[in-house]
Write a protein that binds this DNA or RNA. Structure first.
Lengths: 244, 244
DNA sequence: GATTTAATATTGTATAGATATTAAATCAGA
DNA sequence: TCTGATTTAATATCTATACAATATTAAATC
């Protein structure tokens, strides 16, 4: 096994500038809304021409990580909702968007010792986590059951957050900057516990969404959501030039 | 209603070059693998500097529409599989990747007159279509039932294609260039016909994927796929800098 | 004080030229 | 025929400069 984190130092100058700024954004050092130094200043710090800085910044802008405006300058973009699939963490917004009343109830909320998870191929060691099991409802009809781990190494503030009123998903999108996510989506039959909680028959079809979210290399959260099959669809749109 | 196709002529030179080349790719005039004139030649045809051409081409490359190599030149990329969700059209590849034997059987194959579809909000008028209902199996176990329309206005060659041996999804990815797609994913209970075809119990959970695919403004295909819930998952990965 | 006008900072676009990097093509030598 | 060195075509990067577009700020005017 010869993989010491393969030293992805970029070869070119504009790429170096790009990743340095990107790193500051992803690490949270430059949070959404933070103003990025103007090109002239970056030219001075990196000792290169403005075209080179411009190339780096343009590419970050093309990725949606920053917003640029003439005279107004450049700021870190706030994390946009990526695709409709990622909308699901914000089930509250989805429910309210339809004019229904959103409801949330935490059933379990506890700290868990470090554990190994086997989602995906190899088991990665993850630190302490806060575990929340909750039910989410639309107009008093329970539509989703959620088991969520939030890993405190990545998000230490989560230890003191109050999840009795605010759902952890909502709290996370407000408090944690840029993330990547991996999803597994499947159709399953409701097990007795799910069926009782979601008020459906045992064996009724449910949509299972398992999501693991990262910031950089650290795992932020792992969620397992079970939706009533008759109440929720996922919508996703892709294309070569989608959502740019 | 004042929307005469809002004249999206680009304001800047590099944008103009970009969309002109993009148009040739999306229209199929330059199919996957086609070699694009080198920068020096484009400089001559557009009468601009090489940096300007380079900016246009770099942005197409960043979007994955073209592949560029020093000395080797620039070619149109072949439509890559976008995300694991879009992998599903290529169920054949998925099955064979696991070492299983892929099987395909067309149950219905007919031409249908122009129709209106109501997927999404408003009903768009779509022209004649070829309709194929088929079963896809893994090691002789039926795992997916597919109803597909291919719209002949967008893909006239589809009228003469032979779908007895080759699944229409496979044929499409090979013959139709860049597309966008919209998906709806849901969990449903197997209806009697599905249950009989997929050899499962009536009411068993199934994953439903409805996909509508476009090229430019024309609808290429609309598919409705029902997967055995116990046999298939979807995997999707997203992030600010995913799949670049 | 409100409104218009001018100055200014910042990004966007474009040019011309220099050099570096890569990989295909060609050719020389064994 | 194979191998290895050399040429060469193409993209990649970088610099320096100029001007354009635009939003903010400051000044001037009513």
């Amino acid at each position: 096994m010869h993989d010491h984190a393969p030293d992805h130092r970029p070869q070119t100058l504009h790429a170096r500038i790009r990743v340095e700024i990107e790193a500051r954004i992803l690490s949270g050092e430059w949070p959404p809304g933070h103003r990025i130094p103007p090109e002239t200043e970056l030219v001075a710090t990196y000792g290169c021409s403005r075209m080179t800085v411009n190339k780096a910044m343009s590419s970050l802008a093309a990725e949606g990580l920053i917003l640029r405006n003439r005279r107004a300058g450049t700021v870190v973009a706030r994390p946009r909702i990526h695709s409709a699939i990622l909308n699901i963490p914000d089930i509250r917004a989805k429910v309210e968007e339809r004019g229904a009343t959103y409801g949330y109830l935490a059933l379990t909320d506890e700290l868990r010792p470090p554990c190994c998870v086997h989602l995906g191929s190899e088991g990665h060691h993850l630190g302490r986590s806060r575990f929340i099991r909750s039910v989410h409802s639309s107009d008093a009809l329970p539509v989703m059951l959620e088991d969520r781990h939030i890993f405190l190494d990545a998000v230490p503030q989560a230890e003191r957050a109050d999840f009795r009123a605010e759902p952890p998903g909502t709290w996370l999108v407000a408090h944690v900057p840029w993330t990547e996510a991996e999803h597994r989506i499947a159709a399953i039959a409701a097990e007795p516990l799910m069926a009782r909680t979601l008020e459906i028959a045992v064996g009724a079809p449910c949509l299972l969404v398992e999501r693991r979210t990262w910031r950089g290399t650290e795992t932020v959260t792992i969620v397992r959501q079970v939706f009533r099959g008759d109440a929720f669809d996922l919508i996703a749109r892709f294309g070569p030039n989608s959502e740019r």
